[in-house]
Design a binder for these strands. Structure first.
Length: 894
RNA sequence: GGGAGUUUAGCUCAGCUGGUUCAGAGCAUCUGCCUUACAAGCAGAGGGUCACUGGUUCGAACCCAGUAACUCCCA
């Protein structure tokens, strides 16, 4: 018998995880049972477990374990994502340590190093998930860049290209001039920086204009009608200007409509255009439009058909298009041009200015918006059915509030830029001919066949002349296929697995990737299988620290999940995470949650120690029948609650229901009620019932706390278990009868006990001092049935049913019943009368409010009959109680 | 700039169909207990202008409108 006062999780965690694996309880193969499937949101292969993963995977594990215990064929597919950007950065860092730079390597050499890195360090996170207790079918582990999944990516790209959904186009990317690469938005760190705002004068070139009086009174930047003034933080880009834009409603500038102006220093003529996009309040109200070097300007330029003049080289120096300062770095050029403008009399003033600037996460270079040729996937056609699935409820978002967000996004969807300027990933299967034309094909040979058809003038073309697109596909272009590709649905569209497991049931993920990932999986499901990929999407919150900051490595505010597991046990961390994390709401993480979890499983542990300490005496008769029946009812009631909570994905509520059942009802109430005196034996009937109750409790605890429940499942308490008789595969108990009257009566009895304890506390009478209790029952509650319970928990020696008040005794009421506790010391009549008066006062106020309701004709006419009934009962109860209290008060006076 | 959300006890959050004098839980606080399962515990207690302003209703934390603060997503 294990007598340790506290449960030691570590040993049990290792033992049982190994046991589960060894007995293949996580393994799933299609059979006749109903499937229940979850595909894991594949974590980055470079990743280490963070708190977000903990929450996310705990929820998935709870769902999958519950499904398993409900007799379903539960299949949780794990895997990792190749994460182009993050992994490539890791590999570059590794190479740097070895003194190798990426640009000295060929693509295939680089890929060799990258795979080496992946094999060595990748997938640590999956090992960490095991520590959490994740019951994934590890035999099914997939990787988004493994051969089969890569083939699926290439095939789907070609499929979409053939459908006309893939095209090339120009797009503004975040350019890192030091790293000489495009970086994703996620890798751009925005910082507030002190800058200067330069006010630059552009000369109006056509002289024909009329002077309006407004020009003279306006305090705008327009000093004379010969000039307009533009405020900019980037004077070095004026050579790339394509227009000046003003708001058409801006009265200050009506005279400029249709005019042209000259760029200072280079005297190139550009038009003044009108667009409401320009804010009249900011700067001078005149905006220089530089399509090549600003995203908004680019869009404005597209709208107004402006030329795109790119004046920057890849390294951030000015190129020939700039005409002046060619070869200078952009920042040096900024300083120099300010001087030139000043000298030319075109610089009106310079102001200090604060604004947000993007920096490259990796090189800390100021990000330069840069136009480049990218590959795109058309979205509008695919978005429509994906939107309908959600609007029509075929796919449920939990919580529902995300439907609005989803719809808004899907109705305003932009084409997806699928190319990335990296090597680690699936290289785009496009092949360029020497003349710049291209074909899309799976292999060089197929590409060559197609290319031959394109070239009429070049019969010399060989396969070697084709150059494959350098860019790889966006990582999401492989993850959007995940629910299909993990079951080989592309390689073999009719295989047993995909037919059985797809569509999957629940997807558990973070709301920030609702569009990046979830929406696209829905599109892919429809496009490639004509079916939804999953039925429910449970969106978790973001794990934040106590200050509300997102937990991140760079802030260093995230605890190491493995340390937490070490400290509080996997079970403790699991329930700690779940406790205050309703779907879609952020979780303010604090270690005290885990402490709470640890205390919870320790309570369960100690309950087992108590039961184990009992000796059974077969000759004893069962005095606890009413308690046993009550707990049965209470247990069934809790089961219904828990089931209801799960049905609505209120997982933290389900946990709280379980917690209350176990801690309050089972430990504090049931066990205390049946507990025999010290070193006294217990009757066999009560003991056997208790064992059954405890086993059922282990079952409902298992999805939340798999390790301790499995450990106790195999305790001596339950005798010898067969090898495969494990909690993980036990079937959840079915509901039985709920005796509502019994539950109500017990609530009343519990109140009586609380009141007795309360009087002890307030009168400073020790819990050990034995008292007698007299009951003047005005209701029909059969207190005698509960005599043993009241005696035991109230430390009462005798329970007298009386028909008269007892003077001089401490008294209290539960509903309309009167209770008297004669004390050794005499009561202070003064404070007792104050107490009674206060209570009467409160009840009178209550009664008045009820009476005013009942006296309100409109209430009587409109309220539902059941509500009126309740009010009438409240009135009767209050009146009866006031009457009794007044009697007691007058008795006190005599 | 566009969209979504949040605001309830000191803290973190519940409150589901509007109906128990305007409310619950855990943590924290206070009081008393080392009572032979558990001090990681037991028995109690205190603590609230349900962000603000209006409206609808017999009745509002809940429905509607507006305001404020904060958060997230997209650009």
């Amino acid at each position: 018998m294990n007598i340790s006062k506290t449960y030691q999780p570590k040993e049990a965690e290792e033992k049982w995880y190994g046991y589960w694996l060894q007995h293949k309880f996580f393994k799933s193969v299609p059979d006749e049972r109903e499937p229940y499937t979850i595909v894991i949101p594949p974590p980055n292969v470079t990743g280490v477990l963070h708190m977000g993963h903990m929450l996310n995977n705990t929820i998935q594990d709870v769902l999958i374990r519950r499904a398993r215990m409900k007799g379903k064929n539960a299949c949780w597919v794990p895997g990792t994502d190749h994460a182009s950007i993050a992994t490539e950065a890791k590999v570059v860092a590794m190479l740097k340590e070895r003194g190798i730079t990426k640009k000295d390597l060929t693509r295939s050499e680089f890929m060799t190093y990258a795979w080496e890195w992946k094999e060595k360090y990748g997938g640590i996170i999956l090992e960490q998930l095991k520590k959490l207790g994740a019951s994934c079918d590890w035999d099914r582990t997939r990787f988004t860049m493994e051969d089969d999944l890569t083939e699926a990516v290439i095939d789907t790209f070609i499929h979409l290209y053939k459908k006309g959904l893939i095209y090339r186009g120009i797009r503004m990317v975040n350019w890192d001039p030091i790293g000489k690469t495009g970086v994703s938005d996620e890798e751009v760190i925005r910082k507030e920086v002190n800058q200067k705002l330069y006010y630059i004068r552009y000369k109006v070139s056509s002289i024909k204009y009329q002077v309006s009086s407004k020009d003279l009174t306006s305090d705008s930047g327009l000093r004379t009608s010969d000039f307009l003034t533009v405020a900019t933080t980037r004077p070095e880009t004026i050579m790339a200007d394509a227009a000046i834009c003003i708001n058409p409603n801006d009265e200050r500038y009506f005279h400029l409509h249709g005019k042209k102006v000259l760029i200072p220093l280079i005297n190139r003529e550009i038009p003044v255009i009108l667009d409401e996009y320009v804010s009249m309040d900011f700067g001078t109200g005149c905006l220089k439009v530089t399509p090549a070097h600003d995203l908004n300007d680019y869009e404005l330029g597209q709208k107004h058909n402006l030329p795109v003049i790119d004046i920057l080289n890849d390294d951030g120096t000015l190129n020939e298009n700039a005409k002046i300062l060619v070869g200078e770095d952009r920042f040096a050029a900024r300083k120099k041009i300010a001087v030139l403008l000043e000298t030319a009399g075109a610089l009106e003033k310079v102001e200090d200015y604060k604004s947000q600037i993007g920096f490259s996460e990796r090189t800390d270079a100021v990000i330069e918006p840069k136009l480049s040729m990218q590959w795109f996937c058309k979205m509008d056609e695919m978005a429509k059915p994906a939107l309908d699935y959600v609007l029509e409820g075929e796919i449920k978002l939990i919580p529902e509030k995300f439907i609005n967000t989803y719809r808004h996004w899907m109705e305003n969807i932009k084409d997806w830029c699928v190319s990335r300027q990296l090597w680690w990933g699936q290289q785009i299967p496009a092949w360029y001919l020497p003349d710049g034309q291209y074909v899309v094909a799976k292999t060089r040979e197929e590409a060559f066949e197609q290319a031959k058809l394109l070239t009429t003038h070049n019969s010399q073309l060989t396969t070697e002349d084709l150059v494959q697109e350098e860019d790889v596909l966006d990582t999401w272009f492989s993850s959007w296929l995940w629910p299909i590709s993990v079951f080989d649905g592309f390689k073999d569209p009719n295989n047993a697995d995909i037919n059985y497991y797809y569509p999957t049931n629940d997807l558990v993920t973070a709301p920030e990737i609702l569009f990046l990932w979830v929406a696209r999986m829905i599109m892919a499901g429809h496009e490639f299988r004509g079916e939804i990929p999953f039925k429910n999407v449970y969106l978790t919150g973001i794990v934040r620290d106590k200050l509300g900051r997102k937990m991140s490595k760079s802030l260093g505010n995230s605890p190491d999940p493995l340390d937490l597991i070490e400290k509080y046990g996997a079970d403790g961390v699991r329930v700690g995470m779940l406790r205050s994390s309703p779907a879609g709401n952020d979780l303010m993480f604090d270690e005290s949650h885990c402490e709470w979890g640890r205390n919870f499983f320790n309570k369960v542990w100690n309950a087992s120690r108590l039961i184990k300490g009992w000796t059974v005496d077969d000759t004893l008769k069962n005095n606890n029948q009413v308690v046993i029946e009550w707990f049965e009812s209470r247990f069934n009631e809790a089961l219904v609650e828990i089931e209801g909570n799960f049905a609505q994905y209120r997982i933290s509520e389900a946990l709280m229901s379980t917690y209350k059942l176990v801690w309050d009802n089972f430990c504090s109430e049931y066990l205390e009620m049946i507990k025999p005196g010290y070193q006294q034996p217990i009757d066999s009937e009560t003991y056997n019932c208790t064992i059954i109750f405890f086993e059922n409790i282990l079952k409902i605890l298992h999805p939340f706390m798999p390790f301790i429940s499995e450990e106790l499942w195999h305790d001596d308490l339950f005798g010898q278990r067969a090898e495969y008789d494990c909690c993980i595969v036990a079937q959840l108990p079915n509901y039985g009868q709920i005796n509502a009257q019994l539950l109500n009566e017990m609530e009343t009895v519990k109140q009586v006990i609380t009141q007795i304890r309360n009087i002890r506390n307030s009168k400073q009478i020790s819990q050990k001092e034995i008292l007698e209790l007299s009951v003047k029952a005005n209701s029909t509650v059969p207190y005698k049935n509960y005599e043993l319970i009241i005696k035991k928990l109230g430390n009462i020696s005798a329970l007298h049913m009386v028909s008269d008040k007892i003077s001089g005794a401490a008294s209290f009421m539960v509903w309309s019943d009167e209770f008297y506790l004669p004390l050794n010391e005499s009561l202070d009549p003064y404070s007792e009368s104050i107490r009674l008066q206060k209570e009467i006062e409160y009840l009178t106020g209550f009664l008045n409010s009820v009476n005013s309701k009942l006296g309100n004709e409109r209430f009587m006419n409109n309220a539902k009959p059941t509500i009126i009934e309740v009010e009438l009962k409240k009135k009767a109860d209050a009146e009866a109680k006031i009457k009794i209290l007044e009697e007691n008060l007058s008795a006190l006076a005599n």
